[in-house]
Simulated scan of single mutants.
Amino acid sequence: MNELQRILQAFEQIQNNGKRAVLATVVRTSGSVYRRPGARMLLTEDGEMTSAISGSCLEADILERSRSLFSTDSDPILVRYDTTSNDDILFGFGLGCNGIVDVLLESLKGAVISQMLFVEDCLMMQQMGAIATIFSIDNVPDVKVGDRLMMKFNAPVINQITNLDVTQRIATDVQKSLIEQQSCVQSYALSTGRIDVLIEVIHPPVPLLIFGAGYDAIPVVQFAKQLGWHVTVIDHRPEQLTRDRFPLADQLLYCIPDPPNAYHHLLTPQTIAIVMTHRYLTDLAFLKTLIPAQLRYLGILGPKRRMQKLWEDLAEHGVNPSSEHMQQLYNPIGLDIGAETPEEIALSIVAEIQAVLSERSGRHLRDRVGSIHSSPELPCLELVS
């Protein structure tokens, strides 16, 4: 279960028991910090915290600053934590990160609840969405901190911003972020003042298909579910494809490998697939369908010499992949971490998939030049009217 899923689960419990709560969101960062914009934490009036926005350094202070929001219908609060000075180590929070973090605190009501329901719908329907949150205002009328605009493809826009000019400018950038699948922070200089906005892309759970219900597939499912992925296990052996073996899987799909009618609809450009049936002819039958499909990642368990034989037999069935298809194919599967046990192999597989999703090499962070984050600053752009 990933962070958003944990927060949504806590949100549902809070709604059911009637507790007061506050949502803390990192909306802007600069320099070296623990979390990026979009990181969230849910706090209740009795001190319960779901997720974290720092390495346990800011949470206690955020809880104290949230007290007024628990007891009244106060307006949202924007809090800045500046750790760029050495004074922070001696007199402050002791983060020693040399960065700046802006955190938006909001009561769990109205606009915030609407946001939570939007995120929940994105995850449930496995659709991408984008949320623009206004977190700072300087002399702009008809705009409030916490106002949001939410957008999905082929769906009505949800808009809480009454200023038409601001709405149009933000909507254009939200649509662009949705198309590019890239979150950002925007600063708009208008004729009367200025507003700052976090535009965050909400990604649906990673769809993972595991072809093969053997013993070594069990830890793969467990690791994948820890990351919040949507996992489907596919096999033609009913005695192996059981809930006792795979209690965490989202779906167990019993089918023969060929024809692919039962699973073909699951093959999309976002799909991650692993073939690990341990049966040569079964792997061959699945791969006849999977290799021509435009998948995001296709991993095949087994040594290179076995894969070479598969290529020869696949060619006889008319399967001759393009260079583009080959870029999505990984064999032997997994990162080189010296894995031997099923659990170690599962870790190497899931780590490799995560590296592919993040467009990273999987090398040591020690050897990386520059920021360890793919978007070091989530750039703040100034748009002048």
Rank of each mutant, 00 (worst) to 15 (best):
residue 35 R to G: 03
residue 171 A to L: 02
residue 118 F to W: 09
residue 29 T to S: 01
residue 193 G to A: 08
residue 318 G to L: 05
residue 201 V to E: 11
residue 379 P to A: 05
residue 42 L to M: 12
residue 2 N to I: 04
residue 10 A to F: 11
residue 235 D to M: 09
residue 86 N to M: 12
residue 256 I to P: 06
residue 330 Y to V: 07
residue 102 D to M: 00
residue 239 E to H: 11
residue 108 L to G: 06
residue 384 V to K: 14
residue 21 A to G: 15
residue 139 N to P: 06
residue 324 E to P: 08
residue 293 A to D: 00
residue 306 R to A: 06
residue 360 R to S: 13
residue 101 V to K: 01
residue 265 H to D: 11
residue 124 M to Y: 11
residue 155 A to M: 11
residue 192 T to G: 10
residue 90 L to N: 09
residue 271 T to E: 07
residue 299 G to F: 02
residue 248 L to N: 13
residue 5 Q to K: 14
residue 242 T to W: 03
residue 74 S to R: 11
residue 51 S to A: 06
residue 329 L to H: 05
residue 136 S to F: 13
residue 145 V to C: 10
residue 126 Q to L: 04
residue 199 I to T: 01
residue 197 V to D: 03
residue 106 E to L: 05
residue 9 Q to C: 00
residue 192 T to S: 15
residue 381 L to K: 13
residue 107 S to Y: 04
residue 68 S to N: 10
residue 68 S to Y: 04
residue 257 P to F: 01
residue 148 R to D: 07
residue 226 Q to K: 14
residue 169 R to H: 05
residue 12 E to V: 11
residue 140 V to W: 04
residue 4 L to I: 11
residue 84 T to G: 02
residue 279 R to C: 12
residue 246 F to A: 07
residue 105 L to E: 03
residue 250 D to E: 13
residue 285 A to G: 05
residue 255 C to A: 09
residue 273 A to H: 00
residue 124 M to A: 14
residue 18 G to A: 07
residue 377 E to H: 12
residue 385 S to W: 12
residue 155 A to T: 06
residue 351 A to F: 12
residue 310 L to W: 06
residue 3 E to T: 14
residue 287 L to Y: 03
residue 135 F to H: 05
residue 81 Y to H: 07
residue 315 A to S: 15
